[in-house]
Design a protein around this nucleic acid. Structure first.
Lengths: 180, 180
DNA sequence: TGTCGATATGTACGAACGTACACATGAAGG
DNA sequence: CCTTCATGTGTACGTTCGTACATATCGACA
């Protein structure tokens, strides 16, 4: 039987195109037509592959959250002692967003959706759980909660503040939660 | 001269209606017509009072941020010693969002806008500055930065996590930044 | 009181939208 | 080779949108 038709990963490309469109114009500016154009597929493919816009958004943000989690785990893997862990977290907060400002936008778009619709909250639940799992390889559960929240806040403030704090401030804040 | 016409605070009502509509359906679901209906004014009033949707959103979020800042300052005023300050912050993180879940949605909507459009970033800049000013009545500047970010992260995680941390965890985290 | 101009409103238009659905396409099995 | 039918596409419909603009409304001043 194999492939019925010739483009098996078209669905994947639509999802990636959706993330690009969302990053560019927000969920507010995302439409079937725009995503279709970006992915290079006909409008009809949208409703064929996805029942609704909500389904597409859900799959797109699920993929996005998994990607970020992977990067998070990668940065913190191989870290053995306190100083390295702190450095890795400082890099996460201060460097990652310079590489990809899209990640900030997508993160906030997801949070906004999650704040209103329970179906999207599952995505943030899983994301936060994965983050804590990684952190718990280095610290206890309660500290993981605190650290995760701190990282979140630092990341947002570095991104949206006019006079953001420096790496030294981040490092000092993080170290307060790491047992010496 | 006085009032040219009979409804001087119509503009105000439109702004409040806009915040209600945004809280309900997000920026994505906000239109001139919906805001007009909510405010009980004709569609024509929208373009008369506001040049564009963006102008309306800008004024609405400015008002929102100022309101939150006032509440923030009020909660932290009259606090004298370390334990009281910690308690006040714990209340902010854990109670305020129960009272008004709309605040979480509006906050995230604003951040999302700010992440993409510099004109809205001014609103978050001012907001964060005001928060730090309040905190600096109790701690030094660098600590204020850390505390502000921590509060942000704790607030978001309490709101969007399936298994959020308790008040005790928040309190312990906050106390780590308050000099004993 | 009558007129004038600032203030405010109703309506209409073109663009963009989600969605439905009739139809094209081509691989699989007879 | 030919039929069949799952897979995929083009188009058209009804709705909603932002915006423009002609028109209505009424306070202020002569």
């Amino acid at each position: 039987m194999a492939t019925r038709r010739n483009d098996p990963d078209r669905r994947d490309r639509i999802i990636d195109a959706a993330l690009a469109v969302i990053a560019e114009g927000g969920v507010a500016g995302t439409s079937h037509r725009r995503v279709a154009d970006r992915a290079g597929v006909p409008l009809g493919s949208m409703t064929y592959h996805f029942t609704s816009m909500e389904e597409l958004l859900h799959e797109a943000f699920t993929r996005f959250a998994e990607r970020i989690s992977e990067r998070f785990a990668a940065r913190l893997s191989g870290v053995t002692h306190r100083g390295q862990l702190a450095s890795a977290i400082v890099d996460l907060v201060h460097s990652d967003l310079v590489e990809g400002p899209d990640d900030l936008v997508l993160t906030l778009e997801l949070y906004t959706l999650a704040a209103r619709k329970p179906s999207f909250r599952q995505i943030t639940h899983d994301w936060m759980r994965r983050s804590r799992d990684v952190l718990e390889q280095h610290v206890d559960a309660k500290t993981a909660h605190k650290l995760d929240a701190l990282i979140e806040g630092l990341f947002i403030h570095v991104s949206l503040d006019a006079t953001p704090h420096g790496r030294d401030v981040t490092r000092d804040a993080v170290l307060r939660f790491l047992p010496s």
